[in-house]
Design a protein around this nucleic acid. Sequence first.
DNA 1: AAAATATATTTAGCTAAGTAAATATATTTC
DNA 2: GAAATATATTTACTTAGCTAAATATATTTT
Lengths: 131, 131
Amino acid sequence: MNPLFHELFQKSRYLTNEINLTLKKHNLYASQWTVLYCIQKHGEMSLTQIWKYLNVEAPTITRTVYRLVELGWVDIRPGKDRREKIVHLSEKASQDFQTIKDSIFEFENRMVAGLTKEEEAIFIELLRKIK
Amino acid sequence: MNPLFHELFQKSRYLTNEINLTLKKHNLYASQWTVLYCIQKHGEMSLTQIWKYLNVEAPTITRTVYRLVELGWVDIRPGKDRREKIVHLSEKASQDFQTIKDSIFEFENRMVAGLTKEEEAIFIELLRKIK
DNA sequence: AAAATATATTTAGCTAAGTAAATATATTTC
DNA sequence: GAAATATATTTACTTAGCTAAATATATTTT
């Protein structure tokens, strides 16, 4: 395999594992946090809005959101369109949000500490050229 | 989330999906191909050699290799150390290998067509700085 | 040689992605 | 307004990674 792809996949796996480790103290997994973050940013969202925004398939979001409901991080209410379900952060999630966001922020900064701001920009640019 | 991480995860997912699409005509999945490629390259390998080389956990390789046995891509024989299992390509896999390798090669080149060789090198270098 | 430790693999169970097809409700077309 | 089509969500099942703990065989220590 082209080393570029090999390295990219390895790093992606490494980073999700490290994020999971960081989130462990908050009893969250990476994908769960991604959904929480996305909902917090947009106020409240339907399932469809979430999966379209995150660019994953619908069943993935159904599953993750229902797990988040079970764990008490989000609540679901019906929308005006009776097909759709609107997801919003629970009281608990709203309270804990900033603390969790801070640990993730700290983690992310640690991971890119070896890159200058310019290199970060170049990296993203190159990443976008792979398609 | 830092856009760098967001883009990296998205691209990683996009690429595995595209590789799966490319491999579909050969009735293979990305991770199965990765294992086949690795075995072909090294002649034959024990399970431990495979997972250490690919940098994943042992149970992941156990599962993938046994699926490959079921599908007729690899065979397993005992090693001299009676704990270990040696995996090698089947007749079928050896025959089809070059064709599959060619489609993957074609796919990879298409994906990096937007980058110069120099940019590829820079990309890998930056990727390695994230840690 | 027996006990302790190490290594190779497996089992069980979790998150996380995917596809294909089913179900329920809305919207559009005839 | 009924039929056809579209949209939102769910269900069932697959690959693909992970951790923790079990099992079997080797190696080292005592």
